[in-house]
Design a protein around this nucleic acid. Structure first.
Length: 317
DNA sequence: AACACAATCAACCGCAAGAAC
DNA sequence: TGTTCTTGCGGTTGATTGTGT
């Protein structure tokens, strides 16, 4: 028997919000706040909406400082690098992009960035769409294209992205969804001793600010959400999949350059330090200081090497 | 102009964590 | 300590818009 629904679906209004509803919700929250109870909020306002719907509307559309419109190259870079490193943890990724919501980032990735990276699409009719999850095909035909009409990551780069994703899955063999899996609690990678770089919030300074996941909960107030967009949880680093910038592996630079080439049509220089393409946007993923020793997704610890061997044997790499 | 198909994105859904009782 | 409730999250859906034939 499933849990009771959060609201009576027969009586609540669904579908797109009207300007009047928006105005009512916005005015009320600006004056009274949410009262820490989204379920009760629509009743107080007189809206025939589910509390969850109100919350979503506020967070994704009505609250102040929401940024709409095109993503900048810096934001693209942040999204791509974080996705490669930590997967579909949209709330964490969005937290690195001031003014962007997780829904926005998720939509943007699914509709644009992913296609760009995995081979883009041809205009018009006759476009053949591979299934979005078909990473194997993406590797083969995506990497091999040289027709000048579309660009994609090389097979090598795709391989690495897929390996990262595969490693994440192997970390999480029970199929626990990414937001459920908390490596702070489940140390599936034993080497959890990496130094964590820090940065000040939204100041554009040059390293990632990392806090424990618990602090994310504390920062969920409206003000925090509006002003903060602050922290990347330790999980990203603890996963052993963060920070693709080790000088040990020159392919990292190649992939970074490929990403930049794909996303912006420019090519970065060839040293890890100079690949810091996103400083202004606060997306400093590439610029990890080498002696901070944060493990990156291309580094292979004994544990990851073992997993990698399993992977290569299964996938015949 | 009409149609078919693709792309986009706001909104919904269900699940799990954690707080409250 | 166990149960209920609320929140937050990622995945998915579907209405709308855009584009090519």
């Amino acid at each position: 028997m499933g849990r009771a629904p959060c609201c009576d679906k027969a009586t609540v209004k669904r579908g797109p919000w009207s300007p009047e509803e928006d105005a009512m919700l916005k005015a009320y929250i600006e004056e009274h706040g949410t009262g820490n109870n989204w379920i009760a909020l629509p009743h107080k306002i007189g809206l025939k909406r589910c509390g969850k719907s109100c919350r979503l509307r506020w967070l994704n559309y009505l609250r102040p400082n929401i940024k709409h419109g095109d993503f900048t190259p810096e934001e693209d870079s942040t999204i791509c690098s974080l996705y490669i490193s930590i997967g579909s943890r949209w709330s964490i990724i969005a937290a690195q992009l001031p003014g962007r919501t997780d829904n926005d980032v998720k939509n943007y990735w699914n509709t644009k960035l992913k296609k760009r990276l995995l081979g883009g699409r041809r205009k018009g009719r006759g476009t053949h769409h591979r299934p979005q999850s078909d990473a194997t095909n993406a590797e083969t035909d995506g990497g091999a294209n040289n027709d000048g009409e579309e660009r994609s990551l090389s097979a090598s780069a795709m391989e690495r992205i897929q390996l990262c994703m595969q490693l994440q899955e192997m970390q999480n063999p029970l199929g626990i969804s990414s937001h459920q899996y908390n490596p702070l609690q489940q140390q599936m990678w034993p080497n959890n001793h990496h130094q964590v770089p820090t940065q000040s919030n939204s100041s554009g300074s040059s390293s990632l600010n990392v806090t424990v996941a618990a602090e994310q909960g504390q920062s969920s107030s409206m003000n925090d959400q509006c002003n903060g967009f602050r922290q990347l949880e330790t999980a990203a680093v603890d996963d052993g999949l963060a920070s693709p910038s080790s000088p040990k592996n020159s392919n990292v630079v190649t992939i970074e350059a490929e990403l930049q080439e794909l996303l912006y049509g420019t090519t970065s220089t060839t040293t890890t330090d100079s690949v810091a393409v996103s400083q202004q946007g606060g997306a400093d993923w590439w610029s990890y200081d080498q002696d901070r020793s944060a493990v990156n997704c291309w580094d292979f610890t004994p544990e990851t090497s073992s997993v990698f061997q399993d992977y290569t044997s299964v996938y015949d790499i």
